[in-house]
Design a protein around this nucleic acid. Sequence first.
DNA 1: ACAATTTTGAAACGAATGATTCCTTTTGCA
DNA 2: TGCAAAAGGAATCATTCGTTTCAAAATTGT
Lengths: 301, 301
Amino acid sequence: MEFATFTKRIADAFPDLSPQLQVAARHVLDRPDDVALMSMRALAASAGIHPSTMVRLAKAFGCDSYKKFRTPFQERLRVLPKGYLARARSLQERGTEGEETLTQEVLSANLANLRDTFSINSFEKFEASAQAISNARRVYVVGMRGVFPVAYFFHYTYSMFRDNAVLLDSRGGAFSDDLRHFGKDDVIFAISFAPYTFETVRAVEFACEHGGTAIAMTDSPVSPLAKNAEHVLIVKNESPSFYHSVAAAVTATEELIALMMVEGGQQALKSIEESEQQLEGFQAYWRQNPKKKNKPRKRKS
Amino acid sequence: MEFATFTKRIADAFPDLSPQLQVAARHVLDRPDDVALMSMRALAASAGIHPSTMVRLAKAFGCDSYKKFRTPFQERLRVLPKGYLARARSLQERGTEGEETLTQEVLSANLANLRDTFSINSFEKFEASAQAISNARRVYVVGMRGVFPVAYFFHYTYSMFRDNAVLLDSRGGAFSDDLRHFGKDDVIFAISFAPYTFETVRAVEFACEHGGTAIAMTDSPVSPLAKNAEHVLIVKNESPSFYHSVAAAVTATEELIALMMVEGGQQALKSIEESEQQLEGFQAYWRQNPKKKNKPRKRKS
DNA sequence: ACAATTTTGAAACGAATGATTCCTTTTGCA
DNA sequence: TGCAAAAGGAATCATTCGTTTCAAAATTGT
């Protein structure tokens, strides 16, 4: 919360800064990780500026020392907020240690999954996958069992601005019926982690046999999905518990959607607006005082 | 990847360390964030040990300097892996800047959501919610539209070791039918973000009117869900795009599941084993060479 | 074009950092 | 009990840190 407002303040004041301070500010905004982890002098050097300039930047934003300037950058990186551990310790003495560390493990496993996923898959990979989906005549989405949430999320969000997606969910056992019309201009977006659901693997094979393009979101380059897929996104799903974590997969999906949105431009925005208005029309959303004629509750950004 | 193996090595060697080195090692393992962000002397002081001991710990694990010892702890915290930005810059010169920064924004928004969510909700809150669900006679799960993936994920995972969950999905418009048998020993687990889906709000109200307990996962303490709920988990869902990010909600759900698992103990484990065997029996999973009589593909940890 | 002002870079300072050395204390073993 | 070895602590070192000071350079207004 602190970091976001602070950097925003810097970004807003940017045009009014002196040339050298602008160089410093740009570097700071571009590489917040480095601000937190490197020494001031090293940071200045990597920005190609004099150390004094960094101090001046800090003071220009009301920090009486560089240390205070750096604090929000450091806090942003902490996996566990300050003071969390103090409580953890006291709990431990009460014998609840196991569950407390479990909490930390769930959190850091997921943070690591996110970072790793975006580290393994270059921006170009995301972009290429997004392109392929955007150009498809029809988009078939398949993800079963544990990863069905990912497939559903993709389909739901995608359908806010495009109307050519089909979610395969094998309800009523009619799984293969949905794929009957699959053609060579179509794309299948398949999600599966080990152990791979049979139907998902089969669906990808089917799609490829019929000349279509497959985009796979899976956990390994040697996954049976990857074999046939044109584009492969590797997603980490480590978890301290028995299930596979799907948060990273959801986030990678968000990334795909965001890219397609940007690409879709004005047209996509308009479609979303229409979708929302339609939902309002159906009274899908709760209103503060349904009895009175109130304005609809403002949508959160 | 580096960090995990390194800390594991420390943890494994722990029993063989001298008393003071154990104090140091414990502190390092307990507070990896501090190792990355604080100076060696400050870290030693907060651990109550002599600075020399820290240096000795580093050398005990093959690092010729403390700096090298600290590196994996620092890299772990980076939002963007090293070198990512270098590519970003070159892309920017090719005019793709907008989308590249979007990628970074998606990632860091989600990382922040995760951290904030676990920061806002204390461990006790998670624990209390998990307890309430565990003690319920029946668990009704409701989450519509964008957050249906969360509800589905909860229901799917929970059902691996308990059989008393009902997923409300209003398929066929029979939404309220499912709640007809809701009683005072039952629990409703409801997920909704602004703008709040009407049916979800209504379901919580209904449950409370019938003497049940509501656990809400929502975006604000003043959300209409929070009003009636016994336990409220606040989840961040900031996103650079038009949708609400659900990764943090999924992760918070994972945390609930993990806690209930631990609590469930041996019985829960046995149930999961049975569930998996059943799936194997249905041949739900793909096998490397279905024709030959191979061993089933080993499940990933 | 010149003076006033701001911006910038170089040099130098004290403080803090990580590392080393040396010596005391503790431990293990005969 | 005595002794050798290991462990821990204190003092000290060179280095690097953030910071300050001051003069040069650049910008601005007149």
